[in-house]
Design a protein around this nucleic acid. Structure first.
Length: 893
RNA sequence: GGGCGCGUAGCUCAGCGGUAGAGCACUGUCUUGACAUGGCAGGGGUCACAGGUUCAAUCCCUGUCGCGCCCA
């Protein structure tokens, strides 16, 4: 006998290891089953599970478990990401607590006695950290119920994947698709590395717009006014741009200004980049520290003077008094000095977007350095075509437009990072800086020998690759590429990629590039994109806001199934954010309890499946109807999952299990199960058991734990093995006659209940029911369902009568009127009002439909079925209205 | 500035050409031999606003206003 309450904790802890050790998550490339593969978006190896993971992985697991049951050879490829910058940051922070730093340039500046780690020593520490915390996230995914094939777990820095990374780099280099270039990058002065455009987030900052007067050369009292949000960059100004048609400044084009504080002579150029409407209309040009200025500078051959070092402190290119100042201190000093010189025209408050490094959290500095770039434009061509011709689909479809928008305007991808943790770039430099890009040091040496004609000492490039570089290979590197493995042959292209909108560009786009280039095929057939989980107010969850909801806490409190069900229900939202109200998780937990208790009820009533039971042979209407509803639910759920409408699947499950099985089927069949033994009871016990058995299958992808447990408790495990490996139920045929009859029954019972409640008839009072005007079909139905009606509507005795007695409660269903005489006098006024309300509602409906049908355009233009349906509805409503009117008259009689 | 999404019950959200729905909250009632993490019944909505298309618009189109995201 089942306990009264479902205890997720105990069951989850037991079931998961059972599945895993039985190999239930294992894919089998040797099997003849069709492949279905999802590669997990690899979480940071040292991270922990947050709500976004809970959502993303629930959706993946629902799909994987469903396809596994549908008969596919399902592979959910798991693994973790080394997360270069994020992990390095964490380890550095940990080391700082112990007073240890990194032996990088400038590290001893503040504390000469600080212990400094070499690159090798530091990497050892990172690997230690990985070993220590690396199992956290995968353990948490297990708690969620994720059915990944853990026997195939990979890590972006394991041997095989590192091999793939090197090969990709070398091949792309040799194909001219990776190159070294000197250009502006987004420099993070805190992390001391270049970062890609995508790692920059702009924040609205309240700052100022300074209007500086630059004297015109040879005209002591003439000035050109430039407006800037970054006064400190003036140390690097090498020009001024004005719009060619700007009447205010046009006359100065070609002349020179003298840069205050520095004394440099700078040219005034005409360029459409400057907007006469903005600021002063003249723009100071700092090619080395602004992306737009860089372009302007290139157009007009202006010098790019780098005025900062890598810490964003002023360097030796600036006048001595500014050297060594931090960029913000330099700003203060420069503004103060300009003011002293009377060269500040005005200062306006100004809100503008400032680029911040998403990891370091400080403003990034456009910085002129040599970095490695991938030719994203060329690599994007294959993906663009694949998205255009439908080889890859997006759900929702607008993902495709977003994808194009990005891919068609793509910039060179800066792939080098000045970090230690990551894949070190396989490039070696000779004494003359000649670069040799090879898979190994030996090959580089060989190439150098060939080039120089003698052995020379090579120095390896210290930089590592952007983390997203290895992530971009994930769909094929995890399957064994560059080796020709059976996995690669069978599972690539993978079936679907499930991820958030936020990494469409970071990751999805780059996987497309690398997959198309190296495997000549899309990495996945469908990209299923979902929103960002926020708190219930729509605020992004963050530690600083203190509004973080921990999925593990929800699992502890309500169970993994409840969290999963909630996540699945949330998945639909077309909005970019999914607001999570914790009350929903509680509701999902209640749903689990409901199913648990329905099963408990079935068990108590001897529900069992006889050997060789054939549901098609059911004879009782209620059972035929129930089986039809099961088939309907199956079809709805199956269709919804196939179309990635996971929320529809979960609401169909909820409605079916709670609304149909528990609210109606169980209640309607109680008189049978609790009545005398016989064929009806046997059949109902069998159908109850059958429906529950199929139900746990349908629910399993969303709520795997409770369903596996119930499957076992219902006794199916002994015979068929674990639920996770069961085939998905085949849909059965519907029985329209049973449907109609049960529809009538449900309506009758509901109407009686409603009338009783409105008239305040005590819930315990049993009333006699007199049937007036029922035809043969109704009489037959009443006979069939007498016990159910008596029980559910609290009726004691059903009889035919020529007319309703005085002072009875009356309802109309179909062609019959049902009178319920109340022992005590009922409140005639209240009953009259109730009937009048019903009559009015129906009369209004009839009126509305009449107006429609009276409209010649409607009758002639609307489809015939629609018109017919309206007529039908009108007549039904009108007949019921007429009967209720009669009932109202009798009431007063 | 450009692009996109969202404004539906008190709250969180489905629905997206022809009867406005769910969960939570709320009201009344019921310890009925599965379940009070429950049953039964009920109240609550000019589907943001204004035009347009259509026989018919919450749904399609245009604009306005609010909110959010992405890209500059």
């Amino acid at each position: 006998m089942l306990d009264k309450n479902y205890d997720p904790k105990e069951i989850e802890a037991r079931r998961y290891p059972e599945w895993e050790s039985a190999g239930a998550f294992r894919a089998d490339p040797g099997s003849a089953k069709p492949p279905y593969c999802i590669v997990i978006p690899p979480p940071n190896v040292t991270g922990s599970l947050h709500m976004g993971h809970a959502l993303d992985n629930t959706l993946q697991d629902v799909l994987i478990r469903w396809r596994r049951m549908k008969g596919d050879d399902a592979l959910w490829q798991p693994g973790t990401d080394h997360a270069g910058i994020a992990t390095q940051m964490v380890v550095v922070r940990n080391l700082e607590q112990e007073g240890i730093g990194l032996a990088v340039e400038g590290a001893g500046k503040t504390d000469a006695n600080k212990k400094l780690l070499t690159r090798e020593e530091f990497l050892e520490k990172v690997w230690e950290w990985k070993a220590f915390s690396g199992g956290t996230i995968t353990g948490q995914l297990r708690r969620l119920g994720a059915s990944c094939d853990w026997s195939r777990e990979r890590f972006t820095m394991d041997e095989g994947l590192s091999k793939a990374v090197l090969k990709v780099f070398v091949d792309l280099y040799k194909a001219g698709l990776i190159y070294k270039d000197l250009r502006l990058v987004n420099w993070d002065p805190k992390m001391l590395t270049a970062i890609s455009d995508l790692e920059v987030e702009s924040r609205e900052v309240k700052g100022s717009l300074w209007y500086f007067k630059y004297p015109i050369e040879g005209a002591s009292d003439e000035f050109i006014v430039v407006a800037t949000t970054r006064p400190e960059t003036m140390l690097g100004d090498t020009g001024i741009a004005v719009h060619p048609d700007d009447p205010k400044w046009k006359h100065l084009i070609g002349k020179h200004a003298v840069l205050p504080l520095v004394g440099r002579r700078i040219r005034i150029v005409a360029d459409e980049y400057s907007d006469p409407e903005k600021g002063s209309g003249a723009v100071k040009i700092t090619p080395a520290h602004d992306f737009n200025d860089f372009e302007v500078g290139r157009r007009h051959d202006l010098e790019a003077i780098n005025i900062f070092d890598k810490f964003a402190c002023v360097n030796d290119s600036a006048p001595e008094k500014y050297r060594g100042l931090d960029r913000f201190d330099a700003r203060k000093k420069i503004v103060a000095e300009m003011e002293e010189l009377g060269l500040v025209e005005k200062i306006e408050p100004h809100t503008h977007a400032v680029p911040y490094g998403d990891r370091g959290g400080v403003p990034v500095e456009p910085y002129l350095t040599e970095q490695w770039y991938a030719d994203a434009k060329k690599l994007a061509q294959g993906p663009i075509e694949a998205a255009r011709d439908g080889r890859v689909k997006f759900v929702p479809e607008r993902g495709r437009d977003e994808f194009f928008r990005w891919m068609e305007n793509i910039q060179p991808w800066c792939v080098s990072r000045q970090l230690w943790w990551g894949h070190q770039i396989p490039a070696w430099y000779g004494p003359d800086k000649k670069v040799f890009v090879e898979l190994t040091e030996e090959e580089a040496n060989a190439a150098a020998l060939k080039h120089y004609g003698k052995e020379v000492a090579l120095e390896r490039d210290p930089d590592v690759l952007d983390t997203w570089f290895s992530s971009a290979l994930w769909p094929f590197s995890t399957l064994g590429w560059p080796d020709k493995t059976p996995e690669l042959a069978k599972y690539y292209p993978t079936s679907v990629l499930v991820t958030g909108w936020d990494i469409l560009f970071f990751w999805v786009a780059r996987m497309m590039m690398m997959g198309m280039h190296f495997v000549k095929e899309v990495p996945f057939r469908t990209v299923y994109l979902h929103g960002l989980v926020t708190d219930e107010k729509g605020q992004k969850m963050s530690k600083s806001k203190g509004n973080v909801i921990d999925p593990l806490e929800l699992i502890d409190k309500y169970g993994a199934d409840a969290l999963r069900f909630t996540m699945t229900s949330l998945a639909a939202s077309q909005a970019g954010r999914l607001r999570l109200a914790p009350a929903r998780v509680e509701g999902s937990r209640n749903f689990a309890t409901k199913l648990w208790n329905a099963t408990r009820y079935a068990e108590m009533n001897g529900a069992a499946l006889p050997k060789g039971f054939d549901p098609a042979g059911a004879k009782l209407t209620v059972n035929k109807w129930m089986l039809g509803e099961l088939a309907r639910a199956n079809a709805t759920i199956d269709r919804a999952l196939a179309d990635f409408r996971l929320n529809e699947a979960s609401s169909a499950l909820y409605e079916f299990i709670w609304g149909i099985v528990c609210d109606w089927y169980v209640e309607l069949t109680k008189p049978i199960l609790q009545g005398a033994d016989g064929p009806d009871k046997d059949e109902t016990r069998a159908v109850t058991a059958f429906v529950l058995r199929e139900t746990v299958k349908l629910l399993h992808p969303v709520m795997p734990f409770i369903t596996e447990e119930l499957w076992d408790k219902l006794g199916h495990r002994a015979e068929h093995g674990a639920l996770i490996g069961q085939p998905w139920p085949l849909p059965a045929a519907l029985d329209p006659a049973a449907d109609a009859e049960m529809g009538w029954l449900v309506k009758l019972i509901s109407e009686i209940r409603s009338a009783r409640a409105e008239l305040n008839v005590p819930a315990g009072a049993k009333l006699k029911m007199l049937v007036v005007g029922g035809d043969g079909t109704t009489a037959k139905r009443l006979g069939t369902h007498r016990a159910a009606i008596e029980r559910l509507a609290r009726i004691d005795g059903i009889e035919a009568a020529p007319a309703a007695p005085k002072g009875a409660l009356q309802i109309v269903v179909g062609e019959a009127t049902y009178a319920l005489p109340v022992t005590d006098v009922i409140d005639l006024k209240a009953e009259g009002a109730r009937l009048q309300k019903e009559i009015k509602k129906l009369a209004d409906e009839v009126g509305k439909i009449d107006a429609k049908l009276g409209n010649a355009a409607f009758v002639s233009r609307a489809p015939e079925e629609v018109v017919e349906e309206q007529r039908e509805r009108r007549n039904q409503a009108d007949q019921t209205r007429a009967r209720l009117s009669t009932a109202l008259e009798r009431l007063g009689a």
